[in-house]
Design a protein around this nucleic acid. Structure first.
Lengths: 254, 254
DNA sequence: GGTCAATGAAATTTCCAAAATCTTGTCTTA
DNA sequence: TAAGACAAGATTTTGGAAATTTCATTGACC
């Protein structure tokens, strides 16, 4: 069962036909790995290991890395290669705060423009998210829940008519996901997952009831809780492991 | 006299040292040419001519194009190469509307956080803009006024603490500039330029007086006028030249 | 003992040419 | 006449190797 995708607004690659070049395929896989936190903050992304891992030559790899640099998921340092984006508490809050504003705008716009089709897609996405295996029981497909989660948030704002707003929200979503997953997969307690599901249901109800004020507020609170969660994990990590990974000093600091 | 740059928030490349690789240099030049409207909407960007024009091999050129594709100034079509971004009236208003929101947010934040240094940079940027040769009298350096213009808008929001907000505003600025310059350089009447200068002065006065409400409103109106100007030029171009450039049909249509 | 320069290794960046893909024009056929 | 197949040309994409830069280590000198 392919997941139903109608040009998901949170992933604006060529989704209808699949990647048609090696560079596009590597770009997608690399971005997924970045978002899954498989590369630590500031970790050097050396070309030869990546060529081996993704089974491609140097040209498509560099093209993918350059696109990711423009998306700010990797940093390109000049004559010194690429590294996974650094992290900081301040930047995390910057991303979350901006996402509250922009995704709130997008949600309100979608609720003004959405039709019955849009509503049904939200219901379907919520159902798939509820049925998806929780992220801690990830055996075959570790990213299954994450995909459903992204699809749900994408469905909520899919009716927003501003392509640019959706583009920016998508970029911010990717960075939020990375912050959330970058070091804390093991720590995710079941209790929290259940709370998240309740938040999603409440949010969906407000959206389908066309209660804009309430929906935007619930979305903002949802994101605020995510930010607080990440901040707590940051503090815990800073206390437990002073220097977790290579060049990660700036990560736990500011 | 080098133009004073303190990591201008509207151009987030490695500005302090200048481009350190060929790819970065080509990326900058190509972006400048795109923003100057030197490539028409949908125009095919073939590799060999570009290699000749920018005097480089194929690898750095493709890397630059891939970055620009992530910035949405060019489209990458799969196995069919790159083309300059298409344009449409609807997308132009999308860009302008979003820029009103985001640049307004950034301006308000800057006015909360700005110090004396920030104020003096605004004054200096305004002075340089006032002294810059108007865009129609562009003999040696056709982009001189445009650079000063960008620097002025950048100076206004430079004190905004949100790096992500500044990043997005910079991207939207680039697209606005392209829409403004893409076909209408010859049409720019002096009267309009003088009006723009008056708007800039009024805006600066409100900003330096820390009148947030007024400053944000003036900025929004300033952008609104730019949008209306572009829309008029669009309509005129659609009436006068039905198919101005290659594959530009979609441009004047929606 | 500490600072600085030189040397060599490692990594990135760039050029280049082969391979794969798309486009265009022509010819055939219904 | 229109539709389709086929081949030639043009263009993009990709992998590998050369050139350039950075980084670490060693040694010399003050």
């Amino acid at each position: 069962m392919k997941r139903a995708l109608a040009a998901s607004p949170l992933r604006d690659s060529a989704a209808d036909t699949g990647p048609r070049t090696v560079a596009e395929a590597v770009h997608e896989r690399l971005r997924a790995d970045l978002m899954a936190g498989r590369y630590g903050p500031g970790e050097a992304l050396r070309l030869e290991p990546l060529m081996a891992r993704y089974g491609c030559g140097i040209s498509p790899l560099r093209e993918a890395l350059n696109r990711l640099a423009a998306e700010r998921l990797v940093r390109a340092v000049g004559q010194r290669g690429f590294q996974a984006a650094p992290v900081s508490l301040a930047e995390m809050w910057d991303v979350v705060r901006l996402r509250q504003k922009l995704e709130g705008e997008a949600l309100a716009a979608a609720m003004s423009a959405g039709d019955a089709r849009w509503e049904s897609e939200i219901l379907a996405a919520f159902h798939r998210l509820a049925k998806a295996p929780p992220p801690e029981r990830d055996r075959a497909d570790p990213d299954s829940w994450e995909r459903s989660h992204r699809d749900f948030h994408a469905a909520l704002i899919a009716a927003c008519p501003s392509a640019w707003l959706l583009h920016f929200v998508g970029i911010l979503y990717g960075h939020t996901e990375r912050y959330r997953r970058i070091r804390f997969e093991r720590t995710l307690p079941k209790k929290l997952v259940r709370d998240v599901e309740a938040e999603h249901r409440e949010l969906m109800d407000a959206v389908l009831a066309r209660d804009k004020r309430r929906a935007v507020r619930l979305l903002s609170e949802h994101l605020e809780k995510t930010g607080s969660f990440i901040a707590r994990e940051f503090a815990a990590a800073a206390a437990g492991e002073p220097a977790p990974r290579r060049r990660a000093r700036a990560g736990a600091a500011a």
